[in-house]
Design a protein around this nucleic acid. Structure first.
Lengths: 201, 201
DNA sequence: TTTAACATACTGACTGGTCAGTATGTTAAA
DNA sequence: TTTAACATACTGACCAGTCAGTATGTTAAA
């Protein structure tokens, strides 16, 4: 067979992408190691050279997904001053990501679904939520300090803002039929309503 | 073995409940027919007396879940006049349901996850979304007709309100750690912000 | 009223296919 | 010539679905 030897880095990336693609199409349980290997013309043996088990591929995929997501969020909002702008940009970022890289973002369902059978996965997801919470809560505090808006209950507003984004991701992952451009155009408006600007007195 | 013969109606209900419980704990793929049968001390054969396949149990569970949910929503809001009140009540209903019947509502993830492998399931979910859309969109229209509020973009607001609820359900299904009572207390407030009352002129 | 004939509601052993993981063979590169 | 990076062939556990048989109602005719 044609051996196209690659560096471990390249192969791992390929395997992760192949896994993502397979999990999208069949779900975690139904996607086989042979499916994943086949995506780049590899064999089962080569998969097990890089990963000790199927579950470890999933874990690495989640790590990759979480890294990409959080890195993306931070780099989007880092150059902005106003808390409102940051929140708006964050919302827009997720929607644009969903448009541009549907497959990556709709991996969510695979991870969330596997939280049933796997405590490790569940803990990682809780970890992600904690990080989301930290980001959003600090933005809400910052907005209050800057006197941009007032939030009656930071915990709840934080939870609901995150829920809104997640709900959107999940719905689009299943339906692939949302008009995301319209949603994108309304983000600032919505944030303006949820966090109305303070009257200057 | 002690045969405890039951009517088809009772057995089917038992099987659905057993399946829900097993799917919660292990996910669809990992839960076995023997697991489901064991919940009520039945045997594999008796499951197949009522259902032709494992997937058909899932389908029936979804039907049950969707019926309960929509029935609940309609009965909650039917006695209210104001569109705002209806929207508030709807939000509160989902949160209370999540508190009172976590298992039923966190079944969502099982269904959503199975949309990957099964087109039938995916269509059913799209169907559910369509019904949600119909309810919320008509409430938004009604609110505008009553001059309770104005919505810049009905489609988008509808999508986001539904997303918020779904995101909440899913997060709580995974984490089981949200302070839902706090969220419940903020529903009216949040709706008030998203759909601010019109100034009477 | 009884019982034979039938219908319904199961049981549980068995099968056949699937697939994660393993053992071992092969080759390109250093 | 060694070994990292594969490929191939295999194993064994697991499980959905089958089916022959059993137990438990139901009913109609004698």
């Amino acid at each position: 067979m044609a051996r196209r030897r690659e560096s471990a880095e390249v192969r791992k990336k390929q395997i992760i992408e192949a896994a993502m693609h397979c999990f999208q199409n069949k779900g975690y349980a139904k996607a086989t190691i042979d499916d994943i290997a086949g995506e780049y013309g590899l064999s089962k043996g080569s998969i097990y050279w890089y990963y000790p088990s199927k579950k470890d591929i999933l874990k690495d995929l989640f790590r990759y997904w979480m890294d990409e997501t959080l890195k993306g969020v931070y780099s989007e909002i880092s150059d902005l001053k106003s808390a409102r702008d940051k929140i708006v940009r964050m919302g827009e970022f997720f929607i644009r990501s969903l448009i541009d890289d549907l497959e990556l973002y709709s991996s969510m369902l695979v991870f969330w679904g596997s939280s049933y059978e796997d405590d490790f996965m569940r803990e990682r997801i809780m970890d992600l939520y904690a990080q989301y919470d930290e980001i959003v809560k600090s933005l809400l505090s910052q907005g209050e300090e800057n006197r941009e808006f007032i939030v009656p209950n930071k915990e709840v507003y934080c939870t609901l803002l995150i829920a809104m984004i997640e709900g959107l991701v999940i719905r689009h992952a299943v339906s692939k039929a949302l008009d995301l451009d319209s949603v994108l155009g309304e983000v600032r408006n919505i944030v303006g309503r949820v966090l109305p600007p303070l009257e200057k007195g």
